[in-house]
Write a protein that binds this DNA or RNA. Sequence first.
DNA 1: CAAAATACGTAATATACGATACAGCGCTCT
DNA 2: AGAGCGCTGTATCGTATATTACGTATTTTG
Lengths: 275, 275
Amino acid sequence: MISSIAELISDRIGTMPAGERRAAQTLIANYPLIGLKTVAEFSAAAGVSSPTILRFVARLGFQNYPEFQSALQDELAAQLQSPASRTLNPPSPNGGAVSPMLEATLDNLRETFRHLSDKQLADIVAKLADRRGKTFLIGGRFTDPLARYMAAHLAIIQPNVFHLAGQESVWRDRLIDMGKRDVLVIFDIRRYQDSLVRFAETAHQRGVQIVLFTDQWLSPIARFARHVIAGRTAVPSAWDSSAALFVVAETLIGGVTRQLEADGAKRIRELESLR
Amino acid sequence: MISSIAELISDRIGTMPAGERRAAQTLIANYPLIGLKTVAEFSAAAGVSSPTILRFVARLGFQNYPEFQSALQDELAAQLQSPASRTLNPPSPNGGAVSPMLEATLDNLRETFRHLSDKQLADIVAKLADRRGKTFLIGGRFTDPLARYMAAHLAIIQPNVFHLAGQESVWRDRLIDMGKRDVLVIFDIRRYQDSLVRFAETAHQRGVQIVLFTDQWLSPIARFARHVIAGRTAVPSAWDSSAALFVVAETLIGGVTRQLEADGAKRIRELESLR
DNA sequence: CAAAATACGTAATATACGATACAGCGCTCT
DNA sequence: AGAGCGCTGTATCGTATATTACGTATTTTG
């Protein structure tokens, strides 16, 4: 069973002529980056000619050089998706069904935040804390609870926060209330819902600023979104995980709260006095 | 000090026009592989035209596309050499608002699961997957979305799953439907809601098995609960975090799904054929 | 040792890719 | 409301790249 190209190479390197073997060795030596460069660069690094490189990849079973490169990229993609941190954490003493799920979620969280800069979050917080406009939140079949969760918090610390729920026709009519100064927070992960996409498009046309929570494959709504948060969702389960998006949402909630406190919003002080 | 291209992007993404921002977002979303593909593929993935991609890389300061790709490859090479230094965002030495929140959440997850045995989870899974009884879910002010999230998934893979929402009087009347074989999943964290406690007590008297999601200080409902899941909730924010409970919920959802598949429930097969 | 077969590089060719010019459109600002 | 600017996509061009053909060198085999 050969799964990676590196294995494939070491499997067949014995049957290769001298020139191609040099190509194979240089590729293994700094795998896989040389293979992603041009044939000319690859050949120069290996000290052979271009056709030798092409014969080398042909011997590996690829039709042409681009196909070979695509395979390398796919392999890299798989590596980058599931980071090596899995090996860093103690390999779960109890090999139960629990740990894999937890480990994957921890990875997802780290990966999601790794792609999220402080500045990006600060921008979104500023937008959400801007009390001149209204804030609408909506989610898809499985993500609507996330919208609810966020709305439940935001609605306490500021006015004009609305969670859009129920029948499509109901929240579609709320478009009338939306304008340039308003923000629409949408949660949409695979499989992306047409109704949400249409809703987002119309809102966008009305000048509404869209903050999109989606997965790493990006909902089509990303086209219209001002800010996109791409969370990792892969876990060893039949379902995708929304945990990363959930934590980002909590982070934003905390940020907006802090922001409003800093702004000295009297609403916050009033709230405190109410307790 | 900007060291990686990803930082460079998140630094300037604010000043970019819409199209280029979409390019930036898709690149960040699956970094850096899209950038290693051709301009045509990159543009298709981002949903923009080729020139927009080229303008995007030009704005980042690169003379041409190949130069941009080389930079990405160099970065990848450095990463692959030392897997430990895979930090895209530097560990934010500036007390940025991001990391503390993330770190605390990661800790909470680990702690929560540390106090949770495989057996405990397996028991709950078995209980939830037992299709002889009904499953009810309910939550408090902030945790109701968690109940919704769990209900949304469970209701697909098995019948007789009900999320109790709306007015207290409404779900209180549903007590009539509950009996010994039924399960009631309650989410309740500080400040514990009296209405929920009363509800749980009555349900308990009727013989309903209660699965309680609460925080580490334990809701009074714990008295009546058959199973208690105590999640860590402390984060550097004005609000408590429900992330740990969320992840436990996802773990249970995954477990129940696997269980029902193993039981060969025909509902699961029917579902698959429906897709 | 001779002759064939295989391997390899040079040079020419075709393709696909990145780059550019230009026009249409929407947006902002006065 | 109108004029100007900036952004974006279409179509075209030039070029770098992969590919192929062919001749030479090297190894293999009888």
